[in-house]
Amino acid sequence: MRIQIVTPAAEGSLNGNRRTADRWADAVRTLGHDVRITTHDDGQGTDLLLALHAYRSADCIRAFRERAPDRPIVLALTGTDVYRDQFTHPDVFGSSLLAADALIGLHDRVGDDLPPSFHNRLVTVHQSAAPPPGADDTPPPGRFEVCVIGHLRDEKDPFRAAQAVRNLPDASRIRIIHAGRAYSEDWAARARQEMGVNPRYTWLDQVDHDRIRELMARSGAMVISSVMEGGANVVSEACVAGLPVIASHIPGNIGLLGEDYPGYFPVRDTAALRQLLLRIEDDEAFLQQLRDAVGQRAHRFTPEAERKALQQAMDQALSRMGSSASP
């Protein structure tokens, strides 16, 4: 088949949607299909459209459906789609869902927040990750480094970990190392200001994926403090790396790590996060419990499992289109 993957993120972007599109393109090619990635409906011959983002790709979805009413559409739902845009832009979100023949959710609990009438279109695709390289460097003696990997924007609650390590006891070894692009100069200014007053916080700005993998390899733990997530690939990567995760208790994290994962804290609860960070620094048994827990999830995030789920989503879309076209 000729498959078009559409994403709002342009070529060369380090945005998570672009990385997902690039990885899925490679996966679908291994299944024997011709694949191209675009940011818009290019009018070329396409047998199946795979769109990332119900709201931001809505124009492309509508144009493709009008141009090719007999061709299937697979729609991958992001965190902002499910947890924001379906409420702030219900008409656009709803029209994209109605146009799609199959829906992709990136974690196990997406269906909890979709209208029941769409559950039969939903396929869960866990984003895959490769094991990180061995760390070429290690933190200096006396440091316990905790990484935060996420862009600086409201949905990520990006400074929660920085706030949690302010005024820790002098004996604490914890340092927060944050990699992620500032979505505005105001966010960048806040990061620089935080570094100026908080010696336990370092912002690296945006770095490439190889640097991210190196950062994870040398870190003792990772914090993901988001208020909404569609199923963050950094959680998959942490599980594959055996990197303990301290995560906000939101559906997007629970749907990847499991309801009984021991490393959750309430959203925006700085004090609770602070206590968890101090615990992983001082309680090796608890830290090992987290390592074991993420390790037990790692098998869910293999390239083979991701390819199989993508094929399932495409097959479902083809089947639904065939059924609707039948007399």
Rank of each mutant, 00 (worst) to 15 (best):
L276A: 12
L114V: 10
Q206W: 13
I224E: 02
L277C: 10
S172D: 08
E304D: 15
V82A: 05
A271F: 11
C60M: 09
F64Y: 15
M195A: 13
F301L: 09
D292M: 04
Q193I: 01
I3D: 02
G32S: 09
Y264E: 08
D59C: 02
T20G: 07
R143M: 14
R65N: 11
L278K: 04
G180E: 09
V148F: 06
Q296N: 13
L31W: 05
I212N: 01
H151V: 05
L49M: 14
V245Y: 04
Q311M: 11
S236K: 00
S236E: 04
A21V: 08
T46Q: 03
V234F: 02
T20V: 15
P90Y: 06
L277V: 07
Q44F: 03
A171D: 15
D210K: 07
A309Y: 08
P69G: 09
I73N: 02
P131K: 13
A27M: 09
L50K: 00
D186M: 06
T138R: 14
A164C: 11
A293I: 10
G230L: 02
P69D: 09
G94V: 03
V235W: 03
L256W: 03
A298M: 11
Y183E: 14
D269P: 08
V92M: 03
H151E: 12
L75V: 09
V74Y: 03
D85W: 06
L77E: 05
N198M: 10
G258T: 08
D157S: 13
L97Y: 08
A188S: 11
V146T: 04
G231Q: 07
P90D: 07
L50R: 01
G322V: 02
I177M: 09
E145N: 13
S326K: 12
P116Q: 12
V240H: 05
H40F: 15
R213L: 15
R153D: 09
V223P: 00
D70M: 07
V165I: 14
T46M: 01
A179P: 09
D42G: 05
V35E: 07
R29V: 14
R18D: 10
A102K: 01
G231K: 06
T88P: 04
W203Q: 05
S319Q: 12
Q86E: 03
E259L: 11
T7F: 06
A191T: 07
N120D: 15
S225K: 05
R218F: 09
V197H: 14
P141C: 11
A25Y: 03
D260T: 15
F64K: 00
G231T: 04
E284L: 13
A247V: 06
